[in-house]
């Protein structure tokens, strides 16, 4: 069963060719890690999956993208996005909403909770899953600017989880988090596998080794290699993968 199936995807932004003939298969209920140097197109690829790419000016997307068995490029992007959560590279909690509201709004927009009690439960569940609950349970009504960068990022993860998505897109979710909390988050990500398919961008080979079931390597807009994580670590078939997995790139 595939969560995402991409064939011959080409993305152009104005005259720049950003993603080049990308073909990817992301199986359901796995952690799929995308690696690649800065500027290789990782974020762009994630944004194609949930059609956030639509908001980029001058963009042209060609190819086939099947997400959860629907044709993502032809589907109603708003309906599609309701099934996909995303955590962005830079933490972006809503500054005018409290911690509680930031999580609750995602549940509300997607009709996940039917009562105030259910909403409270979902908010708590999401914050616990994102390893943030213990740090904020006594100040749910504080505003996110009082949180650290790492806490903000986990708040964004909680917000994405509160949608009860089927796919979770994580763009370097641990970039601003200390190693201990990053570890916790990794555990959380792995434990989510039963419920969602996780597509995650990371720069850290160690992190990839700990969480990835599959790895795809992007280089200059192309997929240079993809496959089961172990296989890539043991027998990388390209020099780029080798360097990347050794942390030399």
């Amino acid at each position: 069963m595939l969560a995402v199936e991409i064939e011959h995807l080409n993305v152009y932004i104005r005259h720049a060719h950003i993603l080049k003939n990308v073909t990817l298969r992301i199986p359901k209920n796995t952690v799929f890690v995308i690696m690649g140097p800065s500027g290789s197109g990782k974020t762009t690829l994630l944004k194609v999956i949930n059609r956030l790419i639509d908001f980029t000016e001058g963009v042209r997307v060609e190819g086939v993208v099947r997400v959860l068995d629907i044709d993502a490029l032809k589907a109603d992007p708003y309906e599609l996005r309701k099934r996909i959560g995303m955590v962005f590279q830079t933490p972006n909690p809503f500054p005018h909403l409290t911690i509680y509201e930031n999580v609750a709004i995602a549940a509300k927009l997607n009709g996940v909770a039917r009562s105030k009690r259910e909403l409270d439960e979902i908010v708590r569940w999401a914050l616990e899953k994102a390893m943030l609950w213990d740090e904020v349970k006594h100040r749910l009504h504080a505003y996110p600017h009082q949180l650290s960068g790492g806490q903000r990022q986990r708040l964004c993860l909680a917000r994405a989880l509160a949608m009860k998505p089927e796919i979770l897109l994580l763009d370097e979710p641990t970039a601003n988090i200390d190693p201990i909390n990053a570890r916790k988050l990794e555990e959380a990500i792995v434990s989510l596998k039963d419920e969602v398919t996780v597509v995650m961008v990371t720069h850290s080979p160690h992190q990839a080794a700990r969480v990835a079931d599959y790895i795809a390597v992007l280089y200059d807009g192309r997929v240079v290699e993809q496959g089961p994580a172990q296989q890539l670590f043991l027998r990388p078939s390209t020099e780029i993968t080798q360097k990347l997995l050794r942390g030399e790139m």
Binding site: R81, I84, F88
Partner: peptide, 24 residues
């Protein structure tokens, strides 16, 4: 732009995103 992305990223329809951004 990151707040606009946040709105659509959690499945907001256009009018919902507009109302979130207006209250922001």
């Amino acid at each position: 732009a990151m707040y606009k992305e946040a709105c659509y990223g959690i499945g907001a329809y256009r009018h919902e995103a507009v109302s979130i951004l207006l209250s922001l």
